[in-house]
Simulated scan of single mutants.
Amino acid sequence: MRTRPNYVAGVAAFIWLLIIGVPLYALVNTALQPQSKYTDKGPLALPSALTLDNFKTVVDSGFLQDIWNTVVVAGATVAIVLALAVPISYAVVRGRGWITKGVFRLFLLGLAIPSQAVIIPLFLIINDLGFYDTLWGIILPTAAFALPVSVLVLSGGMRDISTELYEAMALDGANPARTLLTLVLPMSRSAIATTCVFTALQAWNGFLFPLIMTQSNGDKVVTLGLYNFVSEYGSNVPALLTAVLMSTLPILVVYLFARRALVAGLMGAGGK
């Protein structure tokens, strides 16, 4: 049977493409134009002159170091969250005692605590640990606030694995560690990808913890770099948008590699 084309969905998809594509085109178009010409015909007109001087300006300002620091923060945060959230979620799903249920409720309670409400105690703790003005002062609080959502997503994905598969592993003599490694992790790829992307985005876009926990220029991340870039190059709009463009590319690459698993996880497909 032939499927009738869905014209309404096609029109809606085209409108959504315009909503997303037009700002991106304006961003890239302005980043490739000289400062003296980017306002001549408007941001949506075809560029009359192209230049890479804006990228040179951004690189000379030390923005690449800010991007590298953010990559380190995001990578370390994702590693810590996965190392803690995966076994916690597995224990929550397979546990039958009141302790595991209480731990899960405790993590759910963490969803209701905003970081702004506890920033002063966090600052004192980070300072006492000797992590102030280091990247660890950003990584540890970011990972802590990403854990509740990560446990919620991972436990939901692991619950989609049928009980028969767990019983089959037990009949084969597999211990909990082997079951986690050979069954749960492969079948929870969607939930793990969702957790990785969410945690990386949270670390990449974080502003409060870098602002409070760091001071030196050597530990700046992308958000602080853009904040300082506005004050230094606010009148140079093409250079400013070039910095914004460069800051979005790494996380865009992560999304492109994990998009299918991410969509499956968000749709509740879990590990199936």
Rank of each mutant, 00 (worst) to 15 (best):
N6V: 14
N6E: 02
Y7Q: 11
V8P: 01
A9N: 01
V11Q: 07
V11I: 07
V11S: 07
A13H: 10
I15W: 08
L18R: 03
I19C: 05
I20N: 03
G21H: 10
P23Q: 05
L27K: 08
V28P: 11
A31T: 04
L32M: 15
P34C: 11
Y38F: 15
Y38R: 09
T39D: 11
P43W: 03
P43N: 11
L44E: 00
L44R: 15
T57F: 11
L64Q: 00
L64C: 05
L64V: 06
Q65P: 03
Q65I: 07
Q65T: 08
V71Q: 07
V71N: 06
V71M: 00
V72W: 13
A74F: 10
I80W: 11
I80S: 09
V81R: 04
L82V: 01
V92P: 03
R94N: 14
G97E: 04
W98C: 04
I99C: 07
R105T: 04
L109N: 04
L111H: 02
I113S: 07
P114A: 13
P121M: 02
F123T: 03
L124C: 00
I125C: 07
I125F: 10
N127G: 05
D128N: 10
L129W: 08
Y132F: 12
T134E: 03
I139Y: 02
L140W: 06
A144D: 01
F145H: 02
L147M: 11
V149M: 04
V149Q: 10
S150D: 09
L154V: 10
S155V: 11
G156C: 04
R159Q: 13
R159M: 08
D160G: 06
L165D: 12
A168S: 15
A174S: 07
R178F: 06
T179Q: 15
L181C: 06
R189G: 11
S190E: 02
A191E: 02
A191W: 13
I192T: 10
T195E: 13
C196N: 06
A200C: 00
Q202K: 13
N205K: 13
G206V: 08
F207E: 01
F209W: 09
Q215C: 05
S216I: 00
V221P: 04
G225R: 09
N228W: 10
F229M: 14
F229C: 03
F229V: 02
V230W: 03
G234Y: 12
G234T: 00
S235E: 14
N236K: 15
A239V: 02
L240T: 14
T242R: 06
T242S: 14
T248S: 14
I251T: 15
I251V: 15
V254H: 09
Y255W: 03
R259S: 15
R260E: 12
A261L: 01
G271M: 03
